[in-house]
Design a protein around this nucleic acid. Structure first.
Lengths: 165, 165
DNA sequence: TTTGTTATGTTATAATATAACATTATGACT
DNA sequence: AGTCATAATGTTATATTATAACATAACAAA
């Protein structure tokens, strides 16, 4: 469920505990598969499994948490295997990296090319994604004045979510 | 030299190679000292030296680069010493941490409480600080809709600066 | 079915950061 | 000045995150 506010920011609500999460993961998987197929990119079993783990919650997850899960499942896995899968998913825009947490989260708008902007609860860890065109405009304006070519952005807002207050 | 654009963003120009950097460092030191004195916070010799190293360039600097410099100067220093000094400077708002680079940079507006927003050149490493009230407004608006209490923000724009294009 | 390419496995190590405890310096109070 | 509590720094060890380098396996195109 997405909203748009007066500042022209589109955002998801924080995921409700009641939402049908298994359906939500299924949808994300289907989208991811379709996107990769459309680009001739290989959504391999490994990449799919890593993607599933990232999407398993709406909280950013660490690479080593993913690694641990693989190992607990009896699969002998080393860090590069996980990092390479994450790199692939990042390149395809299927997940985002949260720099302030060294963690990864599924992208809510994988179809459209965009930059992730995140609101993250420090207590429960839940995160939601914004796409604010106003922020984009601000950045573009300042960049223009500075004659700066923007390549990537990191926008992360940390605090306490509604449910945790 | 600061500017304000149509989007109500205040920003420094990228530091000119011609600027009087030793004066710039002196000013920063004087400001830092005054701020700490005003708060009864101790701007010790160690903290001052770390601050000087962070301010020595307008590029974000890594904790281990600071550590190396201390060690090259013949001072036996371990990581916690540096990290604690950095933590103090962060708390006092005298420096900022650049999450996307795991590095630290002097704050250009230490007097006023604010959140750093950064534009960083991937080639030369030079960085400049923005204070965009429009971005703040955007974030506040989205946060209000989400009933989210903002505690901190990470806003980092990466790309190629004018001089490096 | 070869063959070049891409993906994954494997080992080692780099880079960043903190925990835990010991020691030293400082400032406030007598 | 001397005591004391607190804050700062020193020290050792280790946790956490990420990548380099090279080997093997899977795949896709001809």
């Amino acid at each position: 469920m997405s909203f748009t506010d007066a500042e022209n920011t589109t955002f998801d609500a924080f995921p409700k505990p009641t939402h049908d999460h298994s359906q939500c993961v299924k949808d994300a998987l289907a989208k991811a598969l379709a996107i990769c197929q459309g680009r001739g990119a290989r959504f391999t079993e490994l990449r799919k499994q890593v993607f599933e783990l990232v999407c398993a919650s709406h909280k950013p997850i660490g690479a080593y948490d993913i690694l641990d899960t693989f190992q607990k499942r009896g699969r002998k896995t080393a860090p590069p295997t996980i990092y390479r899968a994450l790199d692939f998913l990042l390149e395809q825009g299927l997940i985002h990296r949260i720099a302030s947490l060294n963690a990864y989260i599924g992208c809510d708008f994988p179809q459209e090319p965009h930059r992730g902007q995140f609101v993250i609860c420090k207590l429960c860890g839940e995160a939601t994604e914004l796409v604010s065109h106003t922020i984009e405009k601000c950045i573009a304006s300042a960049a223009e004045k500075l004659d700066f070519q923007v390549q990537s952005r990191v926008i992360e807002i940390l605090g306490i979510c509604s449910a945790c207050q």
